[in-house]
């Protein structure tokens, strides 16, 4: 089986390479690019730990082939900080204690980012629904909701 040329802009930087068509986007991000903030938790599109923004939309990068992302833009957790300045969501997770073990956190931040881009003033119910594709085992979600509300108030 052959490889395929790809070119993906990740966190603003053009990345090119030759990949097997079956290479999952999450493995490209984590292993080829070394951006290990994007995590793998379930393999089956349920936990959302691998969530990244693909052309402005939150997707689960364990369920996208790298070749599908060619020509597109990807934003990962590493790209959320600008000039060392935390994104309000990052600050919100810290201020409101929206994380414990930290493993689901990047995915939670990315999906919340997409949510706030579409709806800058979500209700609690809308936040809960917006993060319902992401599992957290530590926090019971209460403070994650507060973290998103914190960011919504800042943005």
């Amino acid at each position: 089986m052959g490889t395929q040329s790809i070119s993906i802009k990740v966190n603003g930087v053009e990345q090119t390479g030759e990949v097997e068509p079956r290479l999952l986007l999450v493995h490209f991000i984590r292993e080829d690019l070394g951006l290990t903030g994007t995590h793998i938790g379930c393999d089956t599109t349920h936990c959302g730990a691998c969530t990244v923004i693909l052309d402005g939309q939150a997707v689960k990068s364990c369920t996208v082939f790298t070749v599908q992302a060619s020509g597109k833009e990807v934003l990962t957790i590493e790209g959320m900080t600008t000039n060392g300045e935390l994104h309000p969501l990052q600050a919100g997770f810290m201020e409101e204690h929206g994380l414990q073990c930290g493993f689901c956190t990047p995915g939670m931040i990315m999906v919340s980012h997409a949510l706030l881009q579409e709806n800058s003033n979500p209700t609690e119910e809308e936040i809960r629904f917006g993060i319902s594709g992401n599992l957290c085992r530590c926090t019971g979600y209460v403070n994650i909701v507060k973290a998103v509300q914190y960011a919504a108030n800042k943005i």
Partner: peptide, 10 residues
């Protein structure tokens, strides 16, 4: 953790 800079086994 909020920067994706944790260091997990994988």
């Amino acid at each position: 953790f909020i920067r994706g800079r944790g260091n997990y086994v994988d």
